[in-house]
Design a protein around this nucleic acid. Structure first.
Lengths: 252, 252
DNA sequence: CGGCTTGTTGATTTCGCTCAATGGTGGTGG
DNA sequence: CCACCACCATTGAGCGAAATCAACAAGCCG
């Protein structure tokens, strides 16, 4: 227990050192250390709870009627999320061992929001960040091929990681990636090896990838990587709903 | 112009009669009538704008690098949404002719939120409703077969419509449905006729469907509608990530 | 070591995308 | 008025991508 308490102090200092959106809450933070697959409880109080990921990773899961799991949100360090009991159709679980959360009772957060106008605005910003995160995931899920899905997922991870310098440590397993992207595990694997064989990424261990050819991931992750964008000339955009059914007017 | 002004008055009264989440804003509403495909401008002010759909429908679109369109949000009457200029990677457009919006300057909304605590809470609720909407769409997009996607889309529409009594008027074209579900138009059509032939729905006109067999839509929209759930016997649920690759462990 | 997880690859089948054609509708201009 | 055009909706044929089924290597820990 002594080490547990020491660890909490350690992580509290880490929280203070992290730049995140709601620094004003640091004083109220209760440090929680979760083990792998541990569920973050629905809610103890009437006003829900706010959480901030200090280290590790957290997923919000929904189980569909066919028994499949869908990860509808993925929270990484410095992300905030809110848990209340009315939205209990989803379960929230720590993904990796020693996931560390800062938790704040909803009532205290609302009290602070009532008192400090600036904080209320920051809180709204955080809520919008959740929405943006969700819509980014929608865009990834909406992509056509699995190669594109995995590619844009890796890009988004890189963008969310602290350095963002092409070195991406996958915080989650292939199975979780599959449930996040709504594809099968095998497809995730195949997409990764495909990207590796094309020289777009390299794998240093199973969980660490390095992005070599970023533009190949950005554009369309299928096709030859350095597809020359020739013929940019006057494309007839006349009919907006005759959207390019086939492909992005790629020319010979 | 006279009719236009009269129409605005008419819709203002309709707004007052509608039960929505932010009744306190009714006094500040500016009525805007949009024509089909008209874009709701990014932002006139620094604090963005809030909108409430009074009638019609609105889509939030993103265009992917391959030229395809993805609808990342669909706003129906009594839904609120927020538009600011920093999130300008998405465009927001009215879908149907004579879409009517109530708009509120962001600054005025924030002012009211600072002043009235209760309103600030309602505003947060509305933001969470957007998030819930987005995650519901994620669940739909994550479904496996197109039949399931279309089926759960119809169900969600039914749940969002005012009566929710099985009679669903599609507010959007097949093309929009396709871009919302990230499938092709043809697939949407085929799924609809498939559901119709199975007797799960009926079509009264192109844009009005009636849900006949709700459970067939809910459960898994594939399979024979009244699939006897045989063999419900003791399924070994031991390993949680050996998730039912194939299908669900249905219980009696 | 043997259960268990994770990651990977191969073979087969199914499903949805793509291409193509057609009917129906509303608007518009000769 | 009617022909034409854009749009919407639907159906068929063929093909490719991903799910599914199956097998296997590596690591981890009791």
């Amino acid at each position: 227990m002594k080490t547990r308490a020491h660890a909490a102090d350690y992580y509290r200092r880490m929280l203070s050192a992290q730049p995140h959106a709601l620094k004003r809450l640091d004083a109220f933070a209760k440090i929680t250390i979760c083990s792998r697959d541990q569920e973050i409880p629905g809610d103890p109080g009437p006003a829900g709870h706010w959480y901030c990921v200090i280290s590790g990773a957290v997923r919000r899961c929904a189980v569909r009627s066919d028994g499949r799991r869908q990860i509808v949100d993925l929270m990484l360090p410095r992300d905030f999320f809110f848990v209340s009991d009315n939205q209990s159709e989803a379960t929230i679980e720590a993904i990796v061992e020693e996931t560390v959360l800062a938790s704040y009772p909803g009532q205290r957060v609302e009290l602070l929001a009532e008192r400090e106008v600036e904080f209320a605005r920051e809180l709204r910003d955080v809520a919008f960040q959740s929405l943006t995160r969700s819509q980014s995931q929608l865009l990834i899920l909406g992509r056509v091929t699995a190669l594109e899905k995995v590619g844009s997922f890796l890009l988004s991870l890189d963008g969310r990681s602290s350095d963002g310098g092409g070195q991406v440590v996958l915080p989650i397993s292939r199975y979780d990636i599959a449930d996040y992207l709504a594809v099968s595990v095998e497809t995730v694997c195949r997409a990764m090896t495909d990207l590796r064989q094309r020289g777009v990424i390299t794998l240093a261990g199973k969980r660490t990838i390095k992005i070599l050819n970023r533009s190949a991931l950005e554009d369309r992750t299928s096709e030859s990587s350095i597809a020359a964008r020739s013929e940019p000339e006057a494309v007839p955009v006349k009919y907006h709903h005759l959207r390019p059914h086939g492909e992005a007017l790629a020319s010979p």
